[in-house]
């Protein structure tokens, strides 16, 4: 590494990093400051410093507690579904067959669609009056008359399914990359040994996708834990708060109740929850090694 290269690199990189530092740092600092005040959207100039009040209120807020439970359920369902779906899709894409290139294009399509549009698609698909799901089930004779699927019991599951639909493709490509590192010989060996498909996955495939799966779990948790737009476009948080996740609730505080400070405090709880979950994953998936 000579001096000129170091200089050029410095010129190319440092300004951009400085900007990135600011755009990442500003919201963190600002949102933390806001969370300590009672700032209201209708009058930004006048606010009071309230200390930890917003955080204390958050803990006692029944609706926030409820939304936290909704969030945890949503994250758990989505993560489980994404893990299964992305591994299944990747295992299929890893096979050699005619049309596998086309299947790759088809698989990746849902990833390129915006979270907003995914929610709309979900709403249309399940629409109680004219949704395709009702149409198919009626035509198959499985249901009589149209059914409302987005009920308080099922709505969150359906949002999770459509969120999985949206993010599983990218995750599956990630798993696929790691699947391609599984040595061919090891597969052959396991067949000669007579290992069952389950054992083959456990002892041959899994060790090679384990790290990729960890990343998938982390990214999915981060994404699902902060998902907001899909709840807005698919169910508006309803019915009756059934799909109102913690992020959605903090968003509502901000947008409808105009309470910037309180909303910011709630988003800090979520942030901490996500970091804690991520660390748990790392612990669980790496402790075996030691």
């Amino acid at each position: 590494m000579n001096l000129t290269e170091q200089k050029i690199a410095f010129v190319l990189v440092v300004p951009l990093i400085a900007v990135a530092f600011f755009v990442n740092g500003y919201p963190i600092v600002q949102s933390f400051w806001l969370s300590l005040t009672d700032t209201n959207l209708s009058d930004l100039a006048h606010y009071n410093f309230v200390g930890a009040d917003n955080y204390v209120n958050g803990l006692n807020d029944f609706f926030f507690q409820r939304s936290a439970i909704v969030s945890i359920r949503f994250v758990a369902e989505t993560t489980a579904m994404v893990a299964v779906a992305s591994i299944a899709i990747a295992l299929v894409l890893n096979e050699k067959f005619r049309g596998s290139g086309l299947l790759k294009v088809i698989v990746i399509v849902p990833w390129a669609i915006s979270e907003y549009a995914v929610g709309i698609l979900g709403g249309f698909f399940l629409n109680a009056n004219f949704g395709l799901w009702n149409g198919v089930l009626t035509n198959l004779g499985l249901i009589k008359g149209n059914t409302n699927w987005l009920t308080a019991q099922m709505a969150l599951d359906w949002v999770a399914i459509f969120y999985t639909w949206n993010i599983a493709p990218l995750m599956s490509f990630f798993i696929l990359t790691s699947l391609q590192t599984v040595p061919e010989d090891l597969y052959k060996m396991s067949r000669v040994d007579g290992a069952s498909p389950f054992r083959r996955f456990r002892y041959v495939t899994f060790p090679f996708i384990r790290y990729a799966l960890l990343i998938v779990l982390v990214l999915t948790t981060m994404a699902a834990g902060s998902a907001t737009v899909i709840m807005y476009s698919m169910t508006l948080g309803g019915p009756g708060g059934a799909t109102q996740t913690a992020t959605y609730y903090s968003f509502v505080q901000f947008l409808q109740k105009r309470q910037l400070g309180y909303g910011a405090a709630l988003s800090w709880y979520i942030f901490i929850f996500l970091i804690a979950t991520t660390m748990l994953y790392f612990y669980l998936l790496t402790r075996r090694r030691k």
Binding site: P183, D185, L186, K188, M189, S190, R191, V192, D193, G194, A195, Y203, V204, P207
Partner: peptide, 15 residues
Amino acid sequence: EKRDIAMVFQSFALY
């Protein structure tokens, strides 16, 4: 698995 054979591979193929 029913042919009663054993194999050794170039990459050793250890689990």
